[in-house]
Every structure is written in C-alpha cells, then in structure tokens.
Design a protein around this nucleic acid. Structure first.
Length: 878
RNA sequence: GGGCGCUUAGCUCAGUUGGUUCAGAGCACUUGGUUUACACCCAAGGGGUCGGGGGUUCGAAUCCCUCAGCGCCCACCA
C-alpha cells in the first residue's frame, strides 16, 4: 500500500483514537504491576477547552503514556467539577434570559435546572480532550456531584465537625453582592483602583469645633459607631472622652482611643464602622461598640441608609458626597489608590460583612502538609513554589466553607430552634433527629422530624475537590477498599500555580487527614498561557485561539508539540501559532522519513555497504546518548527539553545523518540486513516519540508491519538504557566536520553536489579511517587519499590540525586564500598569547587544579602547531 | 508594606557544585540549492561587553554587595 505523500492528521488521529478506545488500552485495573496514577484537575463541568487545559492535559498525557510504555499500570482518572458558584451563575443567567428569577423557584426546581444544564453542557470538555489524544481511563470518569462523591463530602464535614475542626461563627466574611454569597479569602482578587480619600468634618458634641477624619467609603458613615484616635496623639488630647456627631444621620458616637490607629495616615483620626470593616470590627469588639449594618445582601443600602435606602452602594456614595458637600463638611478630597477586593467569579466589589458562617480551622490540619513539602515527601516543581507554599500555609486563616448557593453539597447541619446553638450536624436527617432528641432530652412526641430545618447553604466547591485524589477511588466512604489502597497515593499532579492554595495545598491536607499519607509525590506547576504581548489568554480579551480549530489546522500531534516546545515548568508560555506550525512541520518530517524507508526495495542478495554498517553502529551509540539525556530531562520534569532532545535526535541525527548514510543509490535496492536494522532503529525512535506525538507514531508503527492488538505501540515498551561508546560518537563528530568542510568548499567554489571531487588529507590527528566510506558517500568523493605533504595550489580546509586538500584546476584565488590564512594566523597568535599569559602567571599554575593547567598546556601546543602549518601554507602561497 | 523570582542572540529559553566540550539550543534572519522522502525541505553562514556598577578569586554568565527594570504571591492600614 503506497503512502499518501501528504500526512492527513485528521483521519489518522480519529482512526487511532477509536482503535485505542476499542482495545481498552486506557483502562486500568488492579494487577501485580506497580501503579502509576494521575488524577486530572477536574475542569468545570460546563466549561470549554481553553489553552490552559491544552497545556495541562498534553503534559499529563505525555507522562501517562511514557509510564505506560515503561510497564507501569498507568491510570489517568478524568472527571469534572460541579463548580458551585460558576455553574450556578450560568444557570441563573440562563433562567433570567428566559424571564425566570431564581427566587421564583424552589430549591428542588432550581437544582433540576442546574442538572439539566450540567447534562446538556457537561462533558463537552471531556470530548474535546479526546481530540487531543488524552489517554484517560474514561471508565473512571468522575464528577464532584456524583452520589458517592457528595456522600464523601458530607461524611468529611460531619467528621471534621465532630473532631471540632469545623465550627459555626459570626464573623467578618467576604460578601459577593452579585452572587449573594460569601467567598473564601482565596476567592477575592485585590485590584488597585483609583479612588478618592475624603476628609470629613465631624462636629464635636457640645462645641462648634470639628474633628476631621479621612475615608475612602463615605457611604459607610451611616454605620459609624465611634471615632478612634491614638492615645499617643497629642493633637487630639483635648478630645478624649468627648462625643462627635455623624453628619447626615446626626448619630452621636464616642471618641475612643486605640494604639491601632496610625497617626501618620490621613488625619490620624479614624471613623469606626464595625459592620463593614474587619479592623473596625476588631475595634468594635474591643471597645464594646454597637454594630450597624447598612447594607442589604444585594449591595444596596437598607433602612439605616435613610433616604438612600434601596440605592446601590456606589450610587449612594456619589449622592452622599454631594450631600456632604452641600453640608460643607468635606474639607478636602485627595486622589488615592487603594486595593479593592473583587469576586473571582463575578467581578463584583466585595463587601466585608458580618454573618453566621461555617469555618474550618486550618492551623492544626496544615502542619503535616507543611512538613510533607518541606521534607520533600511531596515535591513541588519548580522548587521556587516551596517558599510561597510555606508562607501561605504558615499564615493560613480559617477557611470559610459555606456558600449561600444551592448548587453543591448542602451543609448537613439541622436547626431545631432559633438559638445560636440550636443545631446538630449529622449525615442524615434521621440521625440528626435522634441527636436533637438526645440533646433536648425529649420524646419523639415533643418534637417532630419535620420541624428540623437543614441549613440551606452548600459547601465551597473546593471542599469537595480537596478530596478528589481519594474520593475518585472511593477512599472516603470505604477507606480500606482495594482500589484506593492500590492507586493511592498518586504519582504526579499537573496543574496551574493559580490554584496552589485553592486546591493543591488543601488536597495535601486532606490526604494526611484522611489517608495519613500524601495524595501525590510530585506536583508539576505549569505556567500561564499568554499571547505574544504577554497578556493572559482569556475569553474576554478574545486573544485565545480555539483549541479545536488549532487541532484541525495543525493536527493534535502538531499542537501538542507546539504547546510543549516552550513551556518550562512554572514559567509562562508565550503562545504563538508558529509553534504549532513547527509542531506540524516535525510531524511531517517524521512522516516523510518513513515514506523514504517504506519506498525502498529490499534485496536479500545485496551486501551491506560499509557506510551503512558504520551508520548503524553509530546510531546505536547516539540513540543511547540521547536516551540518557531524555531520561534525565524527564526525571527533572523538563518536558520541553525532553521534547527538544527527541526532536533533534529524530530530525538531525536520524534524518539528516543516519538516513543519508544508509540510503541506497537511486533506484538500487537496500540490503535486507541493513533494512532490518533501519526498521528496528525506526521503531526505537517511535517509542520515544510516542508520548509527544502519539498519533503519527502509532500510524507508522502499525504500517511497518501487521500488529496484533497486544503489539500496538501505545502498549509496547520504552527502550532500555544501555552502555554506549562516547569515543565512537566523538570520532563520528570529527567526521561530520570533515563533511561540512567539503560542503563549504563546494558552496564557496560553486561546485555542484552532484559533481564528484577528490580529497586528500594530511592526517596529523591520526583520525581513524573507519569513517572514510561515510566521508566518500556524503561528500560525494571520487577518491580519498592519505598524503604526507600538502598539495600546492589546491583548495584546502582544516579540521583540528588535519589538513584537507581538494585539487581543482585554477580554482584557487591566491589573494583570497592569503587573506583568509592571515586572519586565522592572527587569531591563533592572539589566542596563544592569552594562553601563555595564563601559564606564566604563577598563581594560576599553583592555584588551579592540575587538570586545568594540563589543558592549558595542550592548548598552547595545539596553537603552536597550528601556527606552524599556517605559516607554511602562507609562505608557499606567496 | 512583606516575601519570592526574573534580566544571556531579533524572539522563546538552556547553562547542574566557579575551570575541558562556555558563551549554547530552537525559531527567525542571510546566502546557495528542487529530475532521485520532505520547500512543512537540504546545505552553509551572520548574530550576544550574559541588565548597569563594584567586589571575592589565578579564573565569574555562575559567588557576594549595590543600582535599575520587570513579574508573581501574600498582607486589614482608614
């Protein structure tokens, strides 16, 4: 069957992906082999594939395919995340477009819509991953809202509550007025925003005097319950113990004293609004201040906002400024840059808000997770993230895990009264009921189960995904099951540094808490995919190419290579479509190399050529050298370097040198023995190529000969490391220099590559003649002579101290030649001078290691010899 | 404000404990080449005071100090 001249990625890729699926190669089950496990960072269930996923999953697939070839029981668990807030926001928006408000629906109805949405859009992203070639064990596909996953979350919640790690607290939390839910500290993004610092005069009670405070949020004066000064501040000594009047609402509030106030900032006089600022809350608690919350859940002002009631906080701010101006209490307005917290999901400006929420105590839980990373039980790659991780973990604050949403695991807390402590936590309502009866010490008749009210809130999405490496193997509900015991801990985790705290750190915590063991050994942190202008690729900027389109254009193999070409761990990837072009160019190169081999006629009678014999020997060594380098790169997770080493091995060494050497003369057959070696070498190349370009490698592999399903490349073996001869490689390198010299002469003198020439050498280097046949073939020589005297008037070049001559009638330009030689002489003399300078320096001779001194001496001798020959050549010319 | 990291060829980056092969790779660029796998190709070639300055050393891209620029993370300064 003749091969198509042009490689059709689309057809080939679909064909082999189906074949792989059909034969279940991706599926893993417990056996006697050592497992190698990766759990996918579950993408949002309703998300679509973006460039970050492409990078991430290409890396994971490279790792898992290589592990599979290395004989591990490779298991890559795929799945999706229900993404509580993100998905709920999408569903709310969709319903709104249909004229339905969330508040019009019951919880059950809304969740029904959410499931519809999930079923409709969910899993698209997983289908897209298949296009990329992701060899996930699809039988194990999990979803964080699967029944067993949710049950695991509930079990863990109850467990942590019982252990006293989870508590309910009335605390200052981050409130997203758009999603109308609280957020964890990690979900708040601080952005620098240009704002104003308003200086407001508060009238001192019983006096005509004013005291000036500075604020960036003038609307909050309606919630002020004190003004605070530093007791050290002599400017305000006279105010101690007095009261002031808040403008507009005319509330009388005390002046309190606290060291907390920075005298240098603003006026050194601080207004205290305990309901709307964490520090103010702290002051309020300390000084027993009243708490006045002026905001509704949607960010509009409530009745404490007086005539601004119902107006959005930002509208109210503007209008209040106007009123304050008219009251002439604004003494100054300064431009002020401050950091404003915004919601990671909705972008809304976060309001600090006091409310009852569920919190997880982190400090104790974090300790084993800190130790694990510091003791390198868990390796972060690159290592620079260890510091960041440590710093965060050592200063970790309690985690607000409740969300005022419906889409997610509902908190298993049941209320039976109106008191702060009138609740129980249990896995089921029935258990909760029993607990309540016990707690109250009453009979069933006194309190019915229907009177129990489950907390309407759900847990943070990350409170489910932190169990992911355990729960995908059902290790929470059945801690001693065979699967989790076999596959856990997993080997590698590949993810973005953005979620180091959100997810990675918490998984490590959960791992130690629930398995008493790390969840994975290595964490490979990728960079962010950016465009050429270094902007992060995002939907809103519209600067992200569509991965599916890219794969159509360049083939999945091409895009994989493109993604990997420039993505060192932890460094951002400056994505450029040209990288994919380079990738598909590489695929094309592999394809054509195979077309060449495939087209040869094979002859049993024909003898192996000397060149081919040397080529096969050399490539054997070269391949091993490259393999060692590739392995080294892999071991350090330098995947792009491993790819580049493979790229050069295949393109330069295999195609440009090896194939050129074994290639039979035009129209001639190739010796059967040579052919067999070429095929074997090609197959080894395909094995190391496979993790990077799975499709074309399988295509060629299967085309080489008929293979049974057991013999597919995907489940074949990684080449074994062997001893190799470095000297042999070095000698060959010398040979390539000679060939380059011949090519240079041909080019300079315009001698066609088809025209044979004769070469003579003065072999001062005593170079081995073993490669002479190679030189003859690749240099297209008519003859190769060893001579002892230089040839006058011939074209010449040097490799080290060897001199090569190509006698061509009248081809030599004496002047040019003299100029060239003079220049080289000058350079060599300068070089000699610097070497001799070093050798004359006693401190160098005494201080440097012998090896280095000997080397310098050798350099000196070489230079002297070279100068001799150069001078001789010059004198013969002139 | 605290912490971490970066600065090497036009671009993206390697450069392991200072010393063979230390100034490299890929891409881009220049020049020449297509009847014989591939123009998504072949061959040859040009290109960098290793951010600036200072120091340690016989010797520094590599170690120390300092300055400049950039990036990331964390932090409640109104």
């Amino acid at each position: 069957m003749a091969l198509e001249a042009k490689y059709n990625a689309q057809n080939v890729e679909d064909k082999w992906y189906s074949y792989w699926m059909e034969h279940n190669y991706f599926h893993s089950e417990i056996d006697e082999r050592e497992p190698y496990t990766i759990v996918i960072p579950p993408p949002n269930v309703t998300g679509v594939l973006h460039m970050g996923h492409m990078l991430n999953n290409t890396l994971q697939d490279v790792l898992i395919r290589r592990a599979r070839l290395k004989g591990y029981n490779a298991c890559w668990v795929p799945g999706t995340d229900h993404a509580s807030i993100a998905t709920e926001a999408k569903v709310v928006a969709k319903l709104k477009a249909e004229g339905i408000q969330k508040s019009d629906l019951s919880r059950e109805e809304f969740i029904g819509h959410a499931w519809d949405w999930t079923h409709k859009h969910g899993g698209i992203i997983l289908e897209q991953l298949k296009k990329l070639g992701a060899s996930c064990d699809w039988d194990r596909t999990s979803f964080t809202m699967d029944d067993d996953m949710s049950a695991s979350v509930i079990k863990v919640f109850v467990d942590l509550y019982k252990k006293g790690n989870i508590y309910r607290g009335f605390r200052m939390v981050n409130w997203d007025p758009e999603a109308k839910t609280t957020l964890s500290d990690e979900e708040v993004i601080y952005e620098e925003k240009q704002g104003n610092l308003y200086y407001l005069g508060y009238k001192i009670e019983g006096s005509e005097e004013f005291v000036t405070i500075a604020t960036t949020r003038p609307e909050t004066i309606l919630g002020d319950t004190a003004v605070c000064i530093n007791p050290q501040d002599e400017r305000y000594t006279h105010l101690k113990g007095k009261n002031v009047v808040v403008p507009i609402c005319n509330r009388v509030i005390p002046i309190i004293e606290d060291e907390y106030v920075t005298m240098e900032f603003g006026t050194g006089c601080l207004k205290v609004t305990p309901a709307h600022d964490e520090n103010d809350k702290m002051l309020g608690d300390k000084h027993g201040l009243e708490i006045i919350d002026i905001l509704n859940d949607d960010g509009s002002l409530n009745s404490f906002g007086m005539h601004y009631e119902g107006k959005d906080r930002f509208v109210a701010r503007k209008e209040i400024v106007k009123e304050l101006e008219s009251l002439e209490v604004i003494t100054k307005v300064e431009q002020h840059i401050n950091k404003v917290g915004t919601s990671e999901r909705t972008g809304a400006v976060i309001e600090p808000k006091l409310s009852d929420q569920w919190f997880l105590k982190m400090k104790e839980l974090a300790q084993p997770a800190i130790d694990a990373v510091l003791e390198k039980d868990v390796n972060l790659v690159p290592e620079k993230f260890v510091n960041t991780y440590r710093h965060w973990m050592e200063n970790v604050r309690d985690w607000n895990i409740s969300r005022q949403l419906w889409w997610g695991q509902q908190i298993p807390a049941y209320f039976y009264g109106d008191g702060k402590e009138d609740f129980v936590v249990a896995e089921t309502k029935e258990e909760a009921y029993q607990l309540v009866l016990e707690k109250l010490g009453v009979q069933e008749s006194a309190f019915t189960i229907d009177e129990l009210r489950q907390d309407p809130d759900v847990v943070d999405t990350w409170f489910s995904s932190w169990l992911w490496p355990i729960s995908v193997f059902n290790g929470i509900l059945e801690p001693d099951n065979k699967e989790v015991n076999y596959y856990y801990p997993t080997n590698d985790l590949v993810t973005a540094p953005e979620i180091l705290f959100f997810w990675v750190a918490r998984m490590i915590i959960a791992g130690y808490e629930y398995r008493n063991e790390k969840p994975f050994t290595n964490v490979y942190l990728t960079g962010i995919v950016r465009d050429k202008q270094r902007r992060k690729m995002s939907k809103s900027l519209g600067n992200s190419p569509d991965p599916i389109e890219l794969m159509k254009q360049y083939g999945a193999d091409g895009v994989r290579v493109g993604m990997l070409l420039s993505s060192p761990a932890g460094n951002d990837l400056m994505f450029d479509e040209d990288l994919c072009k380079q990738g598909s160019g590489f695929v094309n190169k592999i394809w054509n190399a195979y077309r060449l081999i495939e087209g040869w006629k094979v002859s049993e009678e024909k003898e192996e050529t000397e060149t081919a014999v040397m080529a096969i020997q050399w490539y054997g060594h070269k391949f091993q050298e490259a393999l060692a380098e590739i392995e080294d790169h892999y071991s350090k997770y330098r995947i792009s370097d491993a790819l580049m080493a493979t790229y050069k091995l295949v393109w330069d060494d295999f195609c440009s040198w090896f194939l050129e050497m074994v290639k039979p003369e035009y129209g001639q057959p190739i010796a059967a023995k040579t052919y067999a070696s070429v095929i074997s070498i090609l197959e080894d190349n395909l094995r190391v190529l496979h993790p990077f370009v799975p499709f074309i490698s399988e295509e060629i592999w299967q085309h080489i000969s008929e293979r049974t399903p057991e013999e597919a490349l995907i489940v074949s073996t990684w080449p074994a490391a062997q001893q190799y001869d470095k000297t042999f490689i070095k000698d060959f390198d010398f040979t390539t220099e000679v060939i380059s010299g011949i090519r240079t002469i041909r080019k300079e003198k315009n001698i066609s590559f088809k025209e044979t020439i004769s070469l003579s050498v003065v072999n001062s280097e005593k170079a081995s003649p073993q490669f002479d046949a190679v030189i003859s073939k690749l240099g297209n020589l008519s003859a190769l002579h060893y001579i002892s005297e230089k040839i006058e008037g011939a074209l010449s070049f040097r490799v080290k101290s060897n001199e090569y001559f190509v006698p061509i009638e009248g081809a030599i330009n004496v002047e040019e030649e003299i100029a060239k030689l003079t220049e080289e002489l000058k350079y060599t003399e300068g070089f000699l001078k610097s070497v001799q300078g070093k050798l004359k320096n006693e401190r160098f001779v005494n201080g440097a290691p012998e090896k280095v001194v000997a080397m310098e001496k050798q350099k000196e001798a070489d230079a002297l010899a070279k100068i001799e020959t150069l001078k001789a050549s010059l004198s013969s010319l002139s």
